[in-house]
Amino acid sequence: MIKMRLFPNIFSKLNKKTAKNPHYALKDTKTLTINSVPQDLSIKVIHNLKDKVTSLIQPKNITMKDGYLLRKVHAFNSFGMFYHVDVIFCNKNFQVIKEIENFGPQKISHYFKDSYFIYCLAPGMIKFLNIKENDILRII
């Protein structure tokens, strides 16, 4: 009985934290810059598993104006997602290491030792924004 109540209590505490501060969710949305040029693209920073579930897994699609940033990761999996995304791997210096276009659902990427940041964008955004290796991607 105790184990069954553990997870709902954790998620209810997280929901109370966001309900008390209405600007909590807005604080983690930033603008993407490519080589110091701001783009019309808002990036949501994903901090934990709850953020990943509510942001990446639950929606049915990702729009051209939205993107997601995962920090301190070396690989990406799309388990639970039912749409394609463009995935960009960056090192600690914000430099693009590898980009994968149209990364399909229910897949795992290779492990990149130097990767530190992963950006998930709508399909086709890598070509649209002309992102290539050695570009600098930052959020402001």
Rank of each mutant, 00 (worst) to 15 (best):
R71M: 14
G104S: 10
C90I: 10
Y68L: 00
G124H: 03
F128S: 15
K65I: 12
M81Q: 11
F79T: 08
K107V: 09
Q95F: 13
L70I: 10
Y116N: 07
L69C: 00
N61S: 11
M125T: 09
F117V: 08
I126F: 05
G104Y: 07
I100R: 03
Y111A: 07
F112H: 13
V73S: 07
Q95M: 14
V87D: 08
I97P: 00
V87S: 00
H84F: 02
D114M: 09
A75D: 15
Q106P: 10
G80N: 07
N91F: 11
S78L: 03
F103G: 07
F103H: 05
Q106F: 15
I97N: 05
N102H: 08
I118E: 08
F89W: 11
K107I: 07
M81N: 02
N77A: 01
K65R: 12
S115N: 08
Q106A: 12
H74N: 14
I62V: 01
F112W: 12
L121T: 04
V87E: 05
N61R: 05
Y83R: 03
K113W: 05
I126N: 15
L69Q: 02
H110S: 03
K65V: 14
Y111G: 11
H110F: 08
N102P: 13
P105H: 09
H84W: 05
K98R: 08
G104V: 03
Y119T: 09
P105R: 10
I100N: 05
K72S: 12
G80Q: 07
F128V: 15
G67Y: 06
F89N: 03
F82Q: 15
D114S: 12
I100D: 09
F103W: 00
G124D: 06
I97S: 04
F76M: 00
E99S: 00
